[in-house]
Design a binder for these strands. Structure first.
Length: 277
DNA sequence: CATATGTCCTGAGAGC
DNA sequence: TGCTCTCAGGACATAT
């Protein structure tokens, strides 16, 4: 489940295509239902062929490939992978970019479950289509003051609020549990009831966890599909304190036992002993 | 407006 | 062994 650290790793992994000229964009034949792609592949190919990639950027959990005044926006969602090297199989490749020059370089977006999406947007449309009303500030750049302000305004449990991309962009189900464990805050606590110093603890934990996870190139879970640009797994899964560790002892307080609960139809893992407030 | 719920999708793993 | 069933969750659509 690519969240901010995994998507950031994907972006860094494809940095080599900056400066390269796209020769063509294709969607390989696929037996599965076609992925959501807008506009169609023929239009995308027409607009991007012969254009030079100017930069790569990330918006929350999306990868943006900029060329000319276009941005190809890839949203990996659950099982998507953007890579210049081998993807797990050839049957779930959803889009491929070929480049002039070295024919071995090609970028593939692979997505087994096909929940991911692909959009081609004018640079000038990014703000209106992707950001305003949809995405809050990025988790790695939001200020403490803005973070406190935003989480003061919702009554939902803090875990559920952390997943709302309109409040802060980039946190997903795995890192939300890890962040709250490091901050020693109960995932059940209504966000607006949490004191400013405790919200600061969550903010600090968010930056610490996300940056550490970026350094570890993300988390590769038991399904093994998430890989970095060299097709190696990430290593942050070895640092997980609570995620998917139900019934194991809490690594922090050594007294509690990790519990799994369900909030907003998502698993939450936490230590009821040391995350009481 | 704020919040809650349903939906999409595939394949791993559980259980019998 | 082979079958059926459940579950994983990001983000949008729709309902309350």
């Amino acid at each position: 489940m690519p969240e901010l650290p995994e998507v950031e790793t994907m972006c860094r992994g494809i940095a080599d295509i900056v400066g390269r000229t796209i020769s063509r964009v294709t969607t390989p034949p696929c037996d599965y239902r076609p992925i959501a792609i807008n506009p169609g592949i023929a239009t995308i190919n027409k607009r991007l062929a012969r254009k030079k990639v100017s930069r790569i950027s990330r918006l929350g959990k999306r990868v943006l490939i900029h060329a000319d005044d276009w941005a190809l926006v890839i949203q990996p969602k659950m099982t998507g992978l953007v890579s210049l090297t081998d993807v797990p199989d050839t049957t779930h490749v959803r889009i491929q970019l070929d480049f002039r020059g070295n024919p071995l370089t090609r970028l593939q977006f692979w997505d087994r479950r096909g929940l991911g999406t692909i959009q081609l947007l004018k640079e000038s449309e990014i703000e209106r289509q992707l950001i305003s009303g949809r995405l809050g500030p990025d988790a790695l750049s939001i200020s403490l003051a803005e973070f406190q302000e935003r989480f003061k305004r919702t009554k939902r449990p803090i875990k559920v609020a952390l997943l709302d991309q309109k409040l802060v962009a980039g946190i997903g189900n795995l890192y939300a549990s890890e962040i709250l464990h490091t901050a020693r805050i109960s995932p059940l606590r209504p966000s607006h009831e949490i004191s400013a110093p405790r919200i600061k603890r969550i903010y600090d934990a968010m930056l610490q966890i996300l940056w550490e996870a970026v350094e570890h190139e993300g988390s590769t879970l038991s399904d093994g599909t998430y890989r970095n640009a060299l097709n190696d797994p990430g290593s942050y899964q070895n640092q997980h304190q609570v995620y998917d560790r139900k019934d194991q002892p809490c690594p922090a307080c050594k007294q509690g036992v990790i519990a799994r609960i369900v909030q907003a139809q998502r698993s939450t893992f936490y230590c009821p002993k040391c995350q009481r407030m």
